[in-house]
Amino acid sequence: MLEIHKETASDGALVLRLTGAATVEQAEPLRQALLDAVQQGEQEHKPLRLDCAQVIEIDSFILQMLCSAHRTAVARQVVMVWDGRPSSPVMGMIREAGFLRHAGCSRCPDDQRCMWCEK
């Protein structure tokens, strides 16, 4: 099961916290939650942070969705970054499935960093 929890951090940023197994079976509720969060960030001019520290499993379907969410945020001029370090299953899958990058993609503006950049 995947639990999705949205809150506003003390600095005003929106934080979307995922807990549990983030796999393709949970893709639709997650897409909806991500889209809502990006839209809220756009309307309220708030940055969006994604907390994946409690994710115990993730697959390529969800990783590509996070990529999509970042692109959507960029297109709507919402800053979207990780909140803390993702859990080791997430980091492991980013590496194994080949999402890790040295440089951000063409849709990534110069002032924002790609989600998949190593540093």
Binding site: R31, S60, F61, Q64, M65, C67
Partner: peptide
């Protein structure tokens, strides 16, 4: 993983594989 085909969330079909 090549992500150039990944669409924005609005056009995203949750169970599709884009990469």
């Amino acid at each position: 993983a090549q992500t150039d085909m990944v669409p924005l969330l609005e056009d995203y079909a949750p169970e599709s594989l884009y990469v």
